[in-house]
Simulated assay, not measured.
Amino acid sequence: MIKYKTEDEIKLMQTSALLVSAALAEIAKILKPGLTTLELDKLAAEFIADHQATPSFLNYHGYPHNITTSVNDAVVHGFPNKTPLRDGDIITVDIGVYKNGYHGDHAYTFILGEVNAAVMKLVRITKASLYEGIKYAVSGNRIGDIANAIQVFNENEGYGVVRELVGHGLGRDMHEDPQVPNYGKRGSGILMKENLVLAIEPMINLGTRHVYTDTDGWTIRTKDGKPSVHFEHDVCVKKGEAFILSDYTPIEQAEKANSALNSSYY
């Protein structure tokens, strides 16, 4: 069932989305080799609580942490753990918050130190493909238009577009209809109307698109062990141009100011 939002609901959802952006920016400020992802989880939990919100992910279908931290070949849903991050790692931090009755949910991939040119390009192209998809989140278009834009943009570079995991509607529930795949045919899927809120999230692999679930029952990894990148925005469908509820600006500012992070792919 598709749940379209009122303008007042969209304002509340933007508050939740911007809180996620702020939490990701806080992580970007301190992220460096030697930190553990459990430390990031603790920081995010405290930041969310300080802003009178709760983590959307904690206890969701039994998930035991506040955020997900997916390192290198982990596509999504990586468990925070005690392993120190290393120079040359890439890490996707995905955060959800629940505030004022609505969820915000988005993700950002960070590069720690120096990586090879192929990984740098993967991060750049995946991030750019998110905005290619968002261009089509306009009333009168179909979900397949978003999906196809993301798929074509990435497959033109030879990347694997993950098919087992999708974006989704967002609102009072963290996962609402419709699903938003990162592959598909233009002109297919539901017709989008104004005030449909979507989490659009390309998950793109350097090698094969094929993935598997790790022994923890949650972490999704690439089958060939090559890196994967994941970017996600919360987006409201509008006439003419989509309204992005989340904001990468504070994340990017913190990323550029942190000498341990590599933002030279911009």
Rank of each mutant, 00 (worst) to 15 (best):
L130N: 01
L130W: 00
Y131E: 06
E132F: 02
E132W: 00
E132H: 09
K135R: 15
K135A: 02
Y136W: 13
A137K: 06
V138D: 03
S139R: 01
G140E: 05
N141C: 08
R142E: 07
I143L: 09
D145Y: 03
D145K: 02
D145P: 02
I146H: 02
A147P: 08
A149E: 07
Q151D: 13
Q151T: 00
F153W: 08
N154S: 07
N156F: 13
N156R: 14
N156Y: 10
G158T: 12
G158C: 15
Y159A: 06
Y159K: 04
V161W: 05
V161M: 08
V161S: 05
G167M: 07
G167Q: 09
R172F: 13
D173Q: 14
H175K: 12
H175C: 15
E176R: 10
E176P: 10
D177E: 14
P181Y: 01
G184D: 10
G184M: 06
G184F: 08
K185H: 14
R186Q: 15
R186H: 14
R186F: 14
S188C: 07
I190M: 11
L191A: 12
K193H: 13
K193T: 09
E194Q: 12
E194D: 14
E194M: 10
E194A: 13
N195C: 06
N195P: 05
V197M: 03
V197H: 02
V197K: 00
V197R: 04
L198N: 00
A199L: 11
I204E: 00
I204N: 03
I204L: 07
I204H: 05
N205L: 14
G207A: 11
T208E: 11
V211A: 08
Y212D: 11
T213I: 15
T213S: 12
T213D: 07
D214T: 12
D214H: 13
D216Q: 09
G217N: 09
G217D: 11
W218R: 11
R221V: 13
V229K: 02
V229C: 09
V229R: 03
E232V: 05
D234S: 06
V237Q: 04
V237S: 01
K239M: 12
G240L: 02
G240H: 07
E241V: 15
E241L: 14
F243P: 03
L245W: 03
D247I: 02
T249V: 14
T249D: 10
P250I: 05
P250C: 06
I251T: 02
I251P: 00
E252F: 03
